[in-house]
Design a protein around this nucleic acid. Structure first.
Lengths: 214, 214
DNA sequence: GTCTATATGGGGATAGAC
DNA sequence: GTCTATCCCCATATAGAC
């Protein structure tokens, strides 16, 4: 149950984000959201028109800035590289860090974003694919191009496949906030939470090796 | 709509598998299943007791043999290696091929399994995690141990993380049966379907490099 | 802007006839 | 084993008072 200090419109967004992250879009009902946010059911439709509109708003609030940051970091490292191409590691960092690193800020709200991010990356072949597509189209295009310039000898579709694998690996990293029952006995925790900096460096090490595989 | 040649119990399983693969477990209603299978709603509860029971049966039919095959292949390559450890590539093949390669058989039914497999690997932090856990506990344990023996200098939790990333990458490979809108323009298709042999070799190349990253 | 009340439909599950 | 009929709950969405 959220405090009443925030306005209704924001409380809806906060609760929706937490519950979507925790249970998925499909499994989260508007009713569950309004109970936690302590708002009226009708207010959801007043502000966001429909459940789909709410999902869109939740994703946009968090991922619009992240995707902006990704493109900014990409430009920064491209500029720093001058007329050469940035390294695969640098491109991967621009792609992965803005998303993974938000988890480092210790605020509760940001930790939901980790799981929400994981959930997004996994939404292939669902009714929400369209929403996700709209959010990430531009980023996908720019990074695909950047990888092609960094590895000109790799065929474009080979690079696309490897990016796809990278996204899957990243999604699993994002979900680390949720205890993974099968492997959890060997996964290290810090204060009951996974150490995000470690996750990020492990993820980048793994994906960089995969992207550059012979 | 399925033909009536198969008995009711099987038709339910076939339709459920296709729809679960296509739309996810949560989003697929029993009613949608019985329409396609052309059976009565009550028969689902008669044979499988509940929706959860049906999910369990669908997964077990396909993944029990696959997981058996995984363990068999692991034993084979461990035996062939004698007193040394199999290579990371060999272990990865034992882990990934039994799942990916079923897609090669051109039967329609097996192509659902690709997506179903992807969907399973993604079901972290949902109400279905328990079901998935039961199916894969043994396999996870054995392969974790195998990787540890192959890379004794890597910390166990480092290996667990890399296995987790590998599973995410594999999940994305499994979903290749569904057109990936964002990247699809550069992904190669053969006869409207992705070439599974190529996917498998790409996936193993990528994940082997990741697992062995410095 | 916020609420109550309700429309409307779909969901899983079951009783009981055949 | 199979079917009809139905229970009961929950879902999204909206109308209309305040």
């Amino acid at each position: 149950m959220l405090p009443m200090s925030e306005p209704t419109k924001i409380r809806i967004l906060d609760s929706a984000e937490r519950l979507f992250a925790h249970n998925g879009f499909e499994a989260t009902s508007l009713r569950a959201i309004i109970v936690e946010a302590r708002v009226n059911l009708a207010s959801v439709h007043y502000y966001y028109r429909s459940k789909e509109g709410l999902i869109r708003a939740v994703l946009e609030r968090r991922f619009a800035p992240i995707n902006q940051e990704r493109l900014r970091l990409l430009e920064v490292c491209q500029h720093a590289a001058g007329d050469r191409s940035p390294s695969v590691e640098q491109i991967l960092e621009a792609f992965l860090l803005p998303m993974v690193m938000v988890g480092i800020k210790k605020s509760k709200r940001n930790s939901y974003l980790m799981q929400l991010g994981g959930r997004i990356l996994l939404e292939s072949g669902t009714q929400f694919e369209r929403i996700v597509e709209d959010q990430f189209k531009e980023v996908a295009r720019c990074f695909l191009q950047a990888f092609q310039q960094a590895m000109p000898r790799l065929a474009p579709n080979e690079i696309a496949w490897r990016m796809n694998f990278t996204i899957g690996a990243a999604a699993k990293a994002m979900f680390a906030g949720i205890p993974m029952k099968v492997l959890s006995n060997v996964l290290q925790k810090v204060d009951g939470e996974f150490e995000v900096r470690e996750i990020a460096s492990r993820l980048i090490g793994y994906t960089a090796a995969g992207m550059k595989a012979p």
